[in-house]
Design a protein around this nucleic acid. Structure first.
Length: 351
DNA sequence: CTCCAGGACA
DNA sequence: TGTCCTGGAG
């Protein structure tokens, strides 16, 4: 690690002229809005967040309305964004702010970080933007910017190395202008110092960047991933009765916890055996390949349409034999519920 | 199609 | 340290 120290002042000046200023959660110091945007921006790109952010604010204009809502409604608005623990924590955090902080977010990063879903970096971002607190953020974008600028080549998979990078992040903080500096780091990572093909010519730190001097900015950050994905295969039952369909609420903990999904079976034989107990025909739908962090999920959906005049007793027998905690939904009602993305697509495609 | 980025938490 | 999801890039 050699080279001139990256200048915070240079980054601040760059942010003011070349950074982003028109995002809807900028130009407000309302902790509720900043917090909401930061949670959504965890693991999610700006372009995707924009629509969700707007819908959330329309439905939940303040922390009180969010805290008062049932979790189901929060998950419904979050549907499609992924990492649904963020939505559950968002809701829990709103309730904690109401119950333990008199309805106002605490004004220090240390206190913010005690709230559900707010880790060290998110707490620092909120505190910097809303309260001008001089604290370091270190999200994925910033890790990339800093490791490149500093030529920090130690494996971030090791906790000790990550701690050292945090120390660097703190040492680089400006005396004043923490808002523009923090935003500048984010903007640099998002628009210039990108994962592939970084635009070094447009970078305010190009003349001090070690990675650039080495001619291989893409080599940073170094992070060995040892996680190997497993495979899973399940069959899903899309049971419809006229304009109604049957959804089950998935248990917590686990994948898609709290979301509404289709009854899940171990395999095709199990679905077919189940449907064989009742009237009507069952039809295979195209497979859906869904990738999660830790496994590849091969989903094999089957559509079972109950005949129009299926006896009430027969329907009840089927309903009570279905796995999971379910009920009937009208199609529009289902599409307004908290569905995982692939399930939403399946129901969307339903004629 | 395949590959991969991206925070918090138990 | 493994668990959570999705979309964008190539």
């Amino acid at each position: 690690m050699t080279g001139k120290r990256p200048s915070a002042a240079t980054l601040v000046a760059w942010q003011r002229t070349h950074g982003r200023h028109a995002l809807p959660w900028q130009r407000t110091r309302d902790p509720y809005r900043v917090w909401l945007s930061e949670i959504m921006l965890q693991q999610t790109q700006v372009a995707t967040v924009l629509g969700y952010y707007e819908r959330f604010l329309l439905r939940f204009p303040d922390v009180r309305s969010l805290a008062a809502a049932p979790q189901d409604e929060v998950l419904a608005l979050w549907s499609g964004l992924g990492y649904y623990s963020r939505a559950r924590n968002l809701h829990a955090c709103a309730r904690a702010v109401i119950e333990h902080h008199g309805g106002s977010f605490p004004n220090s990063s240390a206190a913010l970080a005690k709230l559900p879903g707010i880790g060290r970096s998110t707490a620092a971002a909120i505190a910097a933007f809303c309260f001008g607190e001089r604290t370091a953020i270190l999200d994925g974008n910033v890790k990339r910017v800093l490791t490149r600028a500093l030529g920090f080549g130690d494996d971030l998979a090791e906790a000790a190395h990550e701690r050292r990078l945090w120390q660097h992040a703190e040492a680089l903080l400006p005396k004043t202008g923490i808002e523009a500096y923090t935003q500048g780091l984010m903007d640099l990572g998002a628009t210039v110092c990108t994962v592939r093909r970084p635009a070094c010519d447009a970078c305010p730190w190009s003349n001090c960047c070690v990675a650039r001097a080495e001619g291989r900015p893409e080599a940073y950050p170094v992070k060995t991933r040892k996680l190997k994905r497993g495979r899973r295969e399940n069959s899903l039952l899309l049971l419809t009765s006229g304009a109604q369909l049957w959804l089950v609420q998935r248990p917590a903990p686990g994948v898609w916890a709290g979301l509404w999904s289709l009854p899940e079976f171990t395999g095709d034989e199990a679905v077919q055996a189940f449907a064989a107990q009742g009237p009507g025909r069952i039809e295979a739908l195209p497979h859906v390949h869904h990738v999660l962090t830790h496994f590849d999920w091969q989903l094999k959906p089957w559509h079972w349409q109950l005949p129009p005049r299926t006896a009430a007793a027969t329907r009840q027998r089927i309903e009570s034999a279905l796995p999971g905690d379910g009920r009937w939904f009208a199609r529009d009602e289902a599409l307004a519920a908290g569905l995982p993305a692939p399930v939403r697509r399946l129901i969307d495609q339903l004629a």
